[in-house]
């Protein structure tokens, strides 16, 4: 089995198990304020790391390239309150333009 299949099947299984777990456990298990706070912060920490690594890292090196310009465009569009599809397409166009020039 390839790394692709292992990650697809493993993550899908755990995602469903997580959903079913929440629907099945007694409320007192997860309603602690500390659990709620950590739960709200996890997406912020992980998504920030995913943005950084996917736009500034190449394997174990840090680099500035066409992707970095794409993400800078995305930031500008988000500040201008552009909707999600425009942000993604704007980043792609910026990155592709630089990729084709250099």
């Amino acid at each position: 089995m390839t790394i692709f299949w292992i990650s697809v099947i493993g993550s899908s299984f755990l995602a469903f198990a997580t959903k079913l777990f929440g629907a099945s456990v007694p409320e007192s298990w997860l309603s602690h304020p500390r659990v709620q706070r950590i739960n709200n912060l996890i997406p912020i920490a992980l998504l920030s790391a995913l943005v950084a690594v996917n736009s500034l890292a190449e394997k174990s090196k840090l680099i500035i390239d066409n992707r970095t310009a794409g993400i800078a465009a995305a930031v500008a569009l988000l500040i201008a309150k552009a909707p999600f599809p425009i942000v993604v397409v704007g980043a792609a166009i910026t990155s592709a333009t630089l990729y084709r020039i250099f």
Binding site: P43, I44, L47, S48, L50, V51, N54, S55, N66, R67, A69, G70, I71, A73, A74, V75, L78, F84, V87, V88, V89, G90, A91, A92, I93, T94, S95, A96, T97, Y99, R100
Partner: peptide, 22 residues
């Protein structure tokens, strides 16, 4: 994918998911 900017679309999508939470 790079020629069409899809490699930048991935982090941009993460950023779009992150932004409203900040």
């Amino acid at each position: 994918p790079s020629a069409w900017g899809l490699d930048a679309a991935v982090p941009a999508a993460f950023l779009g998911l992150l932004w409203p939470r900040l």
